[in-house]
Design a protein around this nucleic acid. Structure first.
Lengths: 215, 215
DNA sequence: CCCGGGGTGTTACTTGCGGTAACCGCAGTC
DNA sequence: GACTGCGGTTACCGCAAGTAACACCCCGGG
């Protein structure tokens, strides 16, 4: 049992961490982002200090939690982005992948992006998510920028332009998705087509309304 | 002093509120969004309960504070959007107006959009801004959607499409602006041109890089 | 002239959370 | 059997939001 024990402990270190993260996930999904450390600890069947031993502080726990979901989402997006198809099809597939993800797990999405959306009794003391939501958008923007820079010929200053576009497109996707998720004003396909049309320059082509110059 | 005083009190009710808001503004600009109610009260030369009498709770204070800046920004954007010029010029002017605003008062911008960016000793207990940043983006998106729907002929389902575009464009502007403000990778003009080019369909037109299909 | 009422302001408190120090008990070891 | 390392707990601190209860001040009315 000598070395076996050592391994057990080794294993259980990582294992424990994963269990704690899953417990935290459950609580966050149930209670929303304002889940307290106490509640998470209770869900995991332990008490606060252990959480702090594992994650340092609340931000650390959040970061670990967010990284899992973020990595999964980014992997899915990369897959859609790298699929062998026409550019427009790939753009639509990527948009659709993102929107399907946030549609499928809106609680996770809200946790990643919006701090303290729902109002518990005391809605304060929520996860300080906002500070970390930017990193997610940034990561997506940088990833997209890289793909654009790699794949498309943009002439001089292409690297800078690719980054502008990467962050811009990600922001478009994010804001439109957020609004759509809240109001559900149309189907996912319609939203995807609308956004792709926008990216495809329809804004420049469509006519003004009768009377006066257009937007 | 009879009726004069009544008026004084009346006046000073609104006046007071404005003074408190300006004090809060100063503190938020100095201490960042994690400014405490105590600190704001101290800056205003009074104590907490008065703040609560005026604004109900912290969210109320924030909302009042945000409304001022939001209204001002929206007014500026509307002006740029309504200027008599070609569509592309107006789009660029609007983007530039927004970017100039966030560039001129980044503290205000961070307060409106990002909760607790800077890290004080205890970076927690910040304004729960995230919950309210969405409304700002939503308002901008809805405003833009309205302008688009009014001015541009989008065919059937034009209202829905206008909203998609409104929120999408606002999100693009926001995310790109946020990234740009953090990294300053290029001049404002370059950013504006890059985004306008994106909206003008350059993504659909540019060639792939040599070897393999493009994005 | 005193007296009650609405407005402004204060002190002092409660509650609840993030974070930490100090202690507990049980493996396995010498 | 005493020693050590580690998972775990209780009990606590600090701090911020929010509140209750009290103090002042200026007024119109008896």
């Amino acid at each position: 049992m000598g070395t076996t024990h050592r391994t057990d402990q080794q294993r259980s270190a990582d294992q424990r961490r994963r269990e704690l993260l899953e417990a935290a996930d459950r609580v966050v999904l149930r209670d929303g982002p304002q889940a307290s450390m106490n509640a998470i600890a209770a869900e995991a069947g332990i008490t606060k200090p252990i959480l702090y031993r594992h994650f340092g502080d609340k931000g650390g726990l959040y970061r670990a939690l967010a990284k899992r979901h973020t990595d999964a989402l980014l992997a899915a997006l990369r897959a859609a982005l790298d699929a062998p198809a026409e550019r427009r099809e790939r753009v639509e597939a990527t948009l659709d992948t993102y929107l399907a993800a946030i549609e499928a797990r809106p609680q996770v999405y809200r946790f990643l992006m919006h701090p303290a959306e729902d109002a518990g009794q005391h809605a304060e003391h929520a996860f300080d998510v906002g500070r970390h939501s930017a990193p997610l958008l940034r990561r997506m923007g940088e990833e997209l920028a890289q793909v654009i820079a790699e794949r498309i010929e943009l002439g001089p200053a292409s690297e800078a332009l690719a980054r502008v576009w990467g962050h811009g497109i990600v922001g478009m996707m994010h804001a439109a998705g957020d609004w759509w998720l809240g109001e559900r004003p149309c189907t996912r396909e319609e939203l995807v087509r609308g956004l792709a049309d926008l990216l495809w320059g329809r804004l420049a082509e469509v006519d003004d309304r009768a009377g006066g110059p257009g937007f």
